[in-house]
C-alpha cells in the first residue's frame, strides 16, 4: 500500500491553473523533496494532501483513504505560516495536540523544546518568529504520523537549528512513514532525500531518485534544478 497517491489532481484559482493533472505515487519509508520555484504549485499540492484545499478535478489518497477525517489522523502538516493562537503558551498547545491527536507524543515535544532552549511556559506572542517556527516544527515532528508534509521547514531558521531539524527528520525515520519536504534550499537537504519531484508551473516535470539524477547527469540535484528552472 502506498502512503500517498495523487490521480489527475487539478486545482484552479479563477483563471489560473495552479496544478495540472498531477499523478504520483509515494511509498513508505521515503524522504522526498518537492522542489520548484515560488508559485509553481508546491504549496498547493501540499495543501491538497493535507485537506486545506479541495481539488477541482482528480483526487488524492493517503493510505488508500480519501482526504478527510481519517487521513487527517495520520497526516502531520507543517504550513509555511504561523498557525498557532498567539495567546497560548507552548505547553497549552502541547496539551491541545495531545487532546486531538492520538499519535502525539507530549514527552518527545517537551524534550525537543528543551534541546532548542525554548521555555514551554512562554506565550507564543512573546517568542521571535524563528522560535515560533521551531515550536510548530516540534509539534509536527512529535506526532507518529504516516505522512509528514513540511512546507519550507528550514527556510527562516538559523544554520544550527537547520541541522537540528534535519537530524530530527532523520531520527524520526520509519519504514512505514514518509516525509515530503518542500523547499528552495536544495543543497542543504539533498543528502537527506531519497527522491525528488520537480514542479514547474503546475506540472510535475521530474520524479526520480537523487542517486539516479547524480548518475545520469553527473551533477547534483541542486545543479540540475538550476538548469531546469533557469530564468
Amino acid at each position: 500500500m502506498s502512503i500517498a497517491v495523487c490521480r489527475n489532481l487539478t486545482k484552479r484559482y479563477g483563471h489560473i491553473t495552479a496544478l495540472k493533472n498531477i499523478n504520483l505515487e509515494i511509498e513508505g519509508g521515503k524522504i522526498i523533496g518537492l522542489l520548484g520555484p515560488n508559485g509553481s504549485g508546491k504549496t498547493t499540492l501540499i495543501k491538497l494532501m493535507s485537506g486545506i484545499l479541495t481539488p477541482d478535478e482528480g483526487d488524492a489518497l493517503i493510505c488508500d483513504e480519501k482526504i478527510g477525517v481519517n487521513t487527517k489522523k495520520i497526516v502531520s502538516y507543517l504550513p509555511e505560516r504561523t498557525y498557532l493562537n498567539d495567546w497560548m503558551r507552548a505547553k497549552d498547545i502541547i496539551n491541545m495536540f495531545s487532546d486531538f491527536y492520538r499519535d502525539f507524543k507530549a514527552d518527545t515535544a517537551y524534550e525537543m523544546l528543551k534541546k532548542l532552549n525554548i521555555n514551554a511556559d512562554d506565550r507564543l506572542k512573546t517568542m521571535s518568529k524563528g522560535t515560533r517556527e521551531k515550536v510548530q516544527l516540534v509539534l509536527v515532528m512529535s506526532r507518529e504520523a504516516k505522512l509528514y508534509l513540511l512546507d519550507e521547514p528550514i527556510g527562516g531558521v538559523d544554520p544550527a537549528a537547520r541541522d537540528y531539524i534535519l537530524k530530527t527528520i532523520l531520527n524520526n525515520y520509519s519504514e512505514d512513514a514518509s516525509v515530503i519536504i518542500s523547499t528552495h534550499l536544495i543543497s542543504d537537504i539533498e543528502p537527506v532525500l531519497d527522491d525528488v519531484i520537480f514542479i514547474k508551473e503546475g506540472n510535475m516535470v521530474l520524479h526520480s531518485t537523487v542517486d539516479e539524477i547524480r548518475e545520469k547527469n553527473n551533477k547534483s540535484v541542486d545543479a540540475l534544478f538550476r538548469e531546469v528552472f533557469a530564468c
Binding site: 493535507s50 478527510g68 491527536y101
Partner: peptide
Amino acid sequence: RDEGYLTHTLPMP
C-alpha cells in the same frame, strides 16, 4: 485565517 491551517487539519469533521 491562519489559524484555519490548524483547525482544518484537526481530525474532526
